[in-house]
Simulated scan of single mutants.
Amino acid sequence: MTLFLIVLLTALAFEYINGFHDTANSIATVVSTKVLTPRQAILLATVMNLAGALIMGTSVAKTIGAGIVDTSVIAMPTVLCALLGAIFWNVFTWWLGLPSSSSHALIGGLCGAALASTHGDWSVLHWATGLWPKVVGPMLIAPCVGFVVAAIVMFTLYKALSRVRPRFINMIFGKLQVMSAAWMGFSHGSNDAQKTMGIVTLALLTGTQTGAFKDLPEWLSFLRVETMEVHTWVIIACALTMAAGTAAGGWRIIKTMGHKMVKLQPINGFAAETTAAMVIETATHFGVPLSTTHVISTSIMGVGSVKRFSAVKWGIVGRIVWAWVLTIPVTGLIGYGLMRLAHLLFSFEWMA
Rank of each mutant, 00 (worst) to 15 (best):
G287Y: 06
W233G: 08
G335I: 12
R165L: 09
F20C: 04
G65K: 02
I296S: 06
F88W: 04
G185R: 04
F222Y: 14
L115D: 03
Q265I: 12
E218L: 09
G108K: 05
I300H: 00
V60L: 07
A181G: 13
K307D: 12
I6N: 07
I328D: 02
D70Y: 12
I107M: 01
A272L: 00
F173S: 00
P77A: 02
R224N: 14
R252G: 06
V306L: 08
H231S: 15
W350L: 14
H126P: 04
L5G: 01
S26W: 01
A212L: 14
L12Q: 02
R39Q: 13
A193H: 12
L223Y: 05
G185S: 08
K255I: 02
A311V: 08
A276W: 02
A28H: 01
T331Q: 05
V200Y: 00
M154E: 02
I280A: 03
H259R: 13
L106R: 09
V124L: 06
G185T: 00
L12T: 07
R224Y: 11
A150E: 09
L345K: 10
I300N: 06
L12C: 09
L204C: 01
T118K: 09
F88R: 00
T292Y: 08
K255S: 13
S221V: 00
H285K: 14
M278S: 15
F4N: 01
A151R: 07
E349Y: 10
G52L: 03
V145C: 12
S221H: 14
G57Y: 07
F4I: 07
G332W: 02
T71K: 11
I199M: 06
A247T: 10
N25K: 06
P329Y: 07
I17K: 04
T208R: 03
P289L: 14
G304K: 08
K175S: 12
H343S: 10
G146L: 03
L333H: 05
F222I: 12
F186V: 12
G258W: 06
A352R: 14
A237S: 10
V200A: 03
M301V: 15
N268V: 00
A272K: 04
W127N: 05
